[in-house]
Design a protein around this nucleic acid. Structure first.
Length: 456
RNA sequence: GCCGCUAUCGUCUAGGGGACUAGGACGCCGGAUUCUCAGUCCGGAAACCGGGGUUCGAAUCCCCGUAGCGGUACCA
């Protein structure tokens, strides 16, 4: 935030109607970065669960799990909005008492009829009633406009006349979103509201509630939305749409934070690769752009690869182990060592090291492609060389194999590709000398001799 | 329909009246690294939505249009 407040209080307020998707994750990230950037910033997590039909505890757990995996901590909460019903009821009573809100038994059809009569541009104005089955509406002025001072969009004015006297509480007394949000933000001392652009048009309503209640409004920043590759709103159709899916796809939390931060926000010097510390240091909500961004997994993959390559081997091994659901032992560490500069996601590691754990399964296409006439003879010779090489290291192995190239008068690929297929079953693997060494002499000889017998 | 937001390479963006022959990154294409794939390095193609203004000068300011998106629920 550009204007420094002493103790800015941010909030992330997801509704638990599904898993935390990428757009929500970015909103959470921006709030977190801004809160951590400010000297005494605090972040409150509030669960907007006033829609009891769609809100489930499973979804709440998923959101908490996603926040945890992303490394986004919060200072207060999670606070259930539904759990604050008594506070909402009190605020409601206050407005009813003051005449700022009233009971109205109008149905959706009635509102429609009213508009047909008064014009589509006029907001609905109801008639107070004492009937029991009536909802509660807020009185909206007919004149003037409500102005949202937005950190990203500047001043945005909305004509009051265009807004209905909107329903703030159901007939049963339970409150609705725009009312609950305004009350909670005010009573929880929220000073900075950073949320998606889809709430910009809702903000005047919340401002009206705040004003009726006599509360100071928080500062607002509405973030541009995230879209899928087709330009439409992001959804399951677009591949990895939830945080959990990102994790399963093998992305690193730090890379996801970096990528998400860059979606809608950039640095003046075009820095792309940033540690989370640097993100916190440089992030400013006021610098966020105005246009919706498209989530492009290709760039995330690249960024993720960069993070994977820069990790210390132990950390990298641990990340791979957790992704595979294994214990990080010495064998895995060795396997990771020869793949670290090849994979872009954790999910790509296993196919590269699988041959160290399981017998090779011949990929027919690879076999046919590399096992040309004479391959069997070369493999047999290679086995012989490998049987006696000492020590059994990548360097020594290379030294023992190189003379065969001259002896058979072939290019390196003619020898190394058959060897690769012999030990891994496929034509793609980490470096051949590293792979032979990692496999170990015994297993190597067994596989190479077996291939030598079967090759032409 | 009404109210509102947005608009620079395919994508993320820099730029905020002259420094723009519009910069960077991903992706793409080509080359190098002669063990595969990847990685890495080098090079290349690629954009100011359209039309009017304002101004000596507009990607930048204003208006109109177009397109996309959001809101318009007793959803959040």
């Amino acid at each position: 935030m550009n204007m420094k407040r002493d103790n800015p209080r941010f909030r992330f307020a997801p509704s638990p109607t599904g898993a935390l998707h990428i757009g929500g994750a970015r909103t959470a990230l921006y709030n977190w970065l801004a809160a951590r950037h400010a000297p005494e910033g605090r972040l409150v997590l509030r669960i907007e669960d006033t829609d009891r039909e769609r809100s489930t505890t499973e979804n709440v757990d998923q959101i908490l799990d996603a926040m945890d995996w992303l490394g986004l901590s919060y200072d207060e909460g999670p606070i259930s909005q539904a759990g604050r019903a008594d506070r909402h009821a009190a605020a409601l009573a206050q407005l009813l008492e003051a005449g700022a809100a009233y009971r109205d038994s109008a149905t959706a059809k009635d509102v429609e009829a009213w508009k047909a009569e008064h014009g589509a541009g006029r907001g609905y104005r109801g008639t107070p009633t004492e009937e029991p089955g009536a909802a509660i509406r807020l009185r909206v002025p007919d004149e003037g406009e409500t102005v949202v001072e937005d950190l990203i969009h500047g001043s945005v004015a909305f004509p009051n006349a265009a807004y209905d006297d909107f329903v703030i509480a159901r007939a049963d007394g339970s409150v609705l979103y725009n009312f609950a949000v305004a009350v909670d933000d005010a009573e929880m001392g929220i000073t900075e509201v950073v949320r998606g652009d889809d709430h910009l048009s809702n903000t005047p309503k919340q401002l009206l509630v705040l004003e009726a209640l006599g509360h100071e409004p928080p500062r607002y920043a509405h973030l541009p939305l995230l879209h899928g590759p087709d330009g439409k709103k992001l959804s399951k159709r677009h591949g990895a749409a939830s945080v959990q899916e990102l994790r399963e796809a093998g992305y690193l939390p730090a890379a996801v934070r970096n990528y998400l931060a860059l979606l809608g926000w950039g640095t003046d010097d075009d820095t792309t690769l940033m540690s989370t510390e640097e993100l916190i240091r440089r992030f400013d909500v006021a610098d966020v752009g105005k246009a919706a961004a498209i989530f492009d997994e290709k760039k995330l993959r690249w960024l993720n690869g960069r993070f994977m390559r820069e990790m210390p081997l132990d950390e990298y091994t641990l990340a791979v182990a957790r992704h595979l659901g294994r214990e990080p032992d010495e064998r895995l560490r060795e396997a990771c060592a020869i793949t670290q500069d090849k994979a872009q996601t954790l999910a790509e590691v296993w196919p590269l090291i699988r041959f160290l754990y399981e017998p090779p399964v011949d990929d027919e296409k690879s076999w046919k492609k590399v096992m040309k006439e004479g391959a069997g003879e070369m493999l047999a010779a290679a086995a012989e060389a490998l049987a006696s090489v000492e020590p059994y290291t990548p360097e020594a192995i290379e030294g023992a194999l190189a003379p065969l190239l001259e002896r058979f008068d072939v290019k390196p690929g003619r020898l190394y590709q058959p060897l690769r297929v012999a030990i891994t079953g496929t034509a793609v693997s980490p470096g051949i000398f590293e792979s032979l060494a990692a496999l170990g002499r015994e297993a190597t000889l067994e596989r190479v001799r077996d291939a030598a017998r079967r090759a032409p």
